[in-house]
Amino acid sequence: MRFLTHSWITLAIVLCASSATYAGTDARTRDLLRQIDDLWRGDSSHGIMRMEVKTAHYARQMTMEAWSKGTEQTLVRILSPVKEKGTATLKSGTNIYSYLPKTDRTIRLTSGMMGGSWMGSHFTNDDLVRESRREDEYDAAISFEGRRGEQDVIEFTLVPKSDAAVVWGKVVLTIRSTDHIPLSEIYYDEDMALARSFSFSAVKNMANGPRPTVMQVTPADHSEEYTRVIYEQLELNVPINDELFSLTRLKQR
């Protein structure tokens, strides 16, 4: 289930190839969740996006170009600001490599570094790799269906299975009833207190269909902070050579 993966890069560039199986989830819920998956499905992708990060200490903006193939291969390269240009992150399988042009060094992130922030945003390195291992971790059910505010929505509540390696207590996903465009995805901790929330907005036609082009994540304990990802360009199912996702290509600017 692509959306719940909170792997924003994969989310952003839409490389959904796998669809999770929700054991213990009824047929309609499963179908709807799969439809959302299909919305984002593509064998490969290429896109340009802008990321805005605001924290209590700093605010920054960067643009980046990203390529993906399957769920296992992703390459992100910073285009601007100039100071960071060329900095690249390669995800290959469950490994993440980081390349810094200033020092001309490639490092493989160790498990201890997974908790670190990715490019100063509210995403951790772990967020980038986790998604491909998200299958079978949740039981899903429709918890609300009807009018809320201006529009008809369907709300899903996903509860992690007891032995799943998931830190959340539950995840609540809300989609528009009409076209099944996702609106928000809210993560709660074990005490059912808000932990972080994703919101999706600015639905535009991009890559042959309507998609939200702005995604924002807000951590619950610092509500004035956020990371916002804005998709500027997106192509799906474009031919991409496997070689792009290699360590040698990581260094090329």
Binding site: T110, S111, G112, M113, M114, G115, G116, T124, D126, V167, W168, G169, Y187, Y188, D189, E190, A195, D221
Partner: peptide, 13 residues
């Protein structure tokens, strides 16, 4: 060994 420990709030190496 090394590991990352994560809760809903935060993660630490």
């Amino acid at each position: 060994g090394q590991a990352m420990f994560a809760s809903a709030r935060k993660s630490v190496g």
